[in-house]
Computed example of a mutant assay.
Amino acid sequence: MTATKTNPGRFFEDYRVGEVIEHAVPRTVSGGERALYHALYPARHALHSSDEFARACGLPESPLDDLAAFHIVFGKSVPDISLNAVANLGYAEARWLRPVYAGDTIRASSQVIGLKQNSNGKTGVVYVRTTGRNQHGLPVMEFARWVMVRKRHAEAPAPETVLPDLADAVAPEALVIPGGLDFSAYDFVQAGEPHRLSDYALGEIIDHVDGVTIEEAEHMMATRLWQNTSKTHFDATPREDRKRLIYGGHVMSMARALSFNGLANAQVIVAINGGSHANPCFAGDTVRAWSEVLDTAPTQAPGVGAIRLRLVAVKDGATVGALRSGDGKYLSDVLLDLDYWALMPV
């Protein structure tokens, strides 16, 4: 007799609103994560590249890139939330609550906050709020996301529909500024660009110019780096087109890194107001990016202001500034629409 000890992952009908799921395998981070992150993406923001620059800005050392911390927390949740996902659909109410430094150990938990079966009866959308904590039990970040998950049995009864009430944006006063952050003696030469918060106008569109062609090997290395086990990123057999879906976070990090050209001083991501993976990305696609300035706000930290940006990742050849068609749907060459707050010198 053969005993079954493997875990096929959760399916849509396995979730219950209100349940809290503690995710397995805490992870201690080191400078290796930073080096690999910078090898995978053209990431050059000075605060995450130089201990000396970070110390001059009031921090004890250079923290892990904000999106790298996000990927680690996200990856912890995948075996319990999106192992059987069709696609990760979007984000809301994400806040970075304290920096992650080399030596920190990160773990995560998620609470199911909503469920909605799709009309085809074969899939449903699961809404969760995920929190990452360090070795002291202190939260380092939190975010809501929703993901389309397969049903184990199409004939299984649909759960009661519960849709969470999620804010359209994180209020500026709810942004958490890293303790000690001080841009009053900010070194613009070392940062790479002279532009400060007052140089950006509401509605301004910034073409980040550069592009990177996505490769199978790099995306799979990145996804494994974050211990993201979602089958759709590795196993080509379930898809009719026999393609691996590029992890949406890979596109996020690529677009954020490309945004350095024009937003080199947007040093710290402190919140994601909303985000959508508008269309799938596959190996061979060339990713480019543009940003729109949506808002600015003061903070209590010396020399530090907040800028709200829309970061749009597109396939090569897309028109800068073009997002939706006349019917309100995303254009087919739009990959990512990310609305976030960042900190920069005033």
Score class of each variant (00 low, 15 high):
residue 234 F to I: 08
residue 59 L to E: 03
residue 5 K to W: 11
residue 274 G to F: 04
residue 245 L to D: 03
residue 243 K to R: 10
residue 337 D to K: 02
residue 331 L to D: 09
residue 104 D to E: 12
residue 340 Y to K: 12
residue 118 N to Y: 08
residue 284 G to V: 13
residue 274 G to Y: 02
residue 30 S to G: 15
residue 144 A to H: 09
residue 157 P to V: 15
residue 53 F to G: 01
residue 153 H to R: 14
residue 44 R to K: 13
residue 144 A to W: 02
residue 26 P to F: 03
residue 22 E to R: 14
residue 338 L to P: 02
residue 313 A to L: 08
residue 330 Y to M: 01
residue 6 T to L: 14
residue 93 E to H: 01
residue 100 V to T: 00
residue 293 V to S: 06
residue 212 V to R: 11
residue 342 A to T: 13
residue 200 Y to C: 03
residue 89 L to K: 01
residue 221 M to S: 03
residue 245 L to W: 00
residue 156 A to V: 13
residue 327 D to T: 09
residue 293 V to R: 03
residue 28 T to V: 04
residue 11 F to T: 04
residue 125 V to P: 11
residue 94 A to S: 08
residue 30 S to H: 02
residue 79 P to Y: 04
residue 340 Y to L: 15
residue 104 D to A: 03
residue 248 G to H: 09
residue 3 A to R: 13
residue 215 E to P: 09
residue 224 R to V: 12
residue 112 V to G: 05
residue 329 K to T: 07
residue 321 G to K: 07
residue 320 V to W: 09
residue 53 F to Y: 10
residue 60 P to A: 05
residue 159 P to C: 11
residue 66 D to P: 01
residue 129 R to W: 00
residue 257 A to Y: 05
residue 117 Q to D: 15
residue 64 L to H: 05
residue 233 H to L: 05
residue 138 L to P: 04
residue 238 P to W: 07
